[in-house]
Amino acid sequence: MADPIQRGGVWWTQREDGSWLRWDESSTSWQPSADPPPPEQVGLPPVPPMPAGTGGYPAPAAGPAVIPNYLVWAILVTIFCFLPTGIVAIVFSSQVDTKLAAGDRAGALDSSNKARMWVIISVVAGIALGIIVVVSLIATTTVTHVDVNFP
């Protein structure tokens, strides 16, 4: 398939048979389109914003079209990297869709960015912890053997 192109904020891609697909934001999948994408407007001045209340195009939403919730990553770093910060990432991830459902796009984007940040913190903490554990293991095994007897 050819690389996707963007027309008026909508992504299009052409299939092998020449038919077009357009990216459907609501179902986040490629949908067949009977119409080809509108031609690229080269050299035309930008369209001035329409006055409010005249029934023009709806105002484009701020920020990216799809707000990722990073829940899969949050769970994986909780298991494999660092649990305490991983749980924080899961909590922020879980807020994204709840806020989207409530119509709070800005809040959802904020939670999404925080979830991403805590995923990165967890990865860094997990690597740091791994290094500390291995170094301390090498240090202790050469000096003494610690036998932890737990019931």
């Binding site: 398939m1 899969v72 899961i90 909590v91 869709d97």
Partner: peptide, 29 residues
């Protein structure tokens, strides 16, 4: 899914877990 996303030429559709799964996992942990 990361293996499939690595070889696919198109923007991968995000694998999105539902909200309840996140809270269920916090409770489980």
């Amino acid at each position: 899914s990361v293996g499939v996303a690595a070889v696919r030429a198109h923007p991968a559709r995000e694998w999105r877990l539902p909200t309840w799964a996140g809270w269920a996992l916090v409770v489980a942990f």
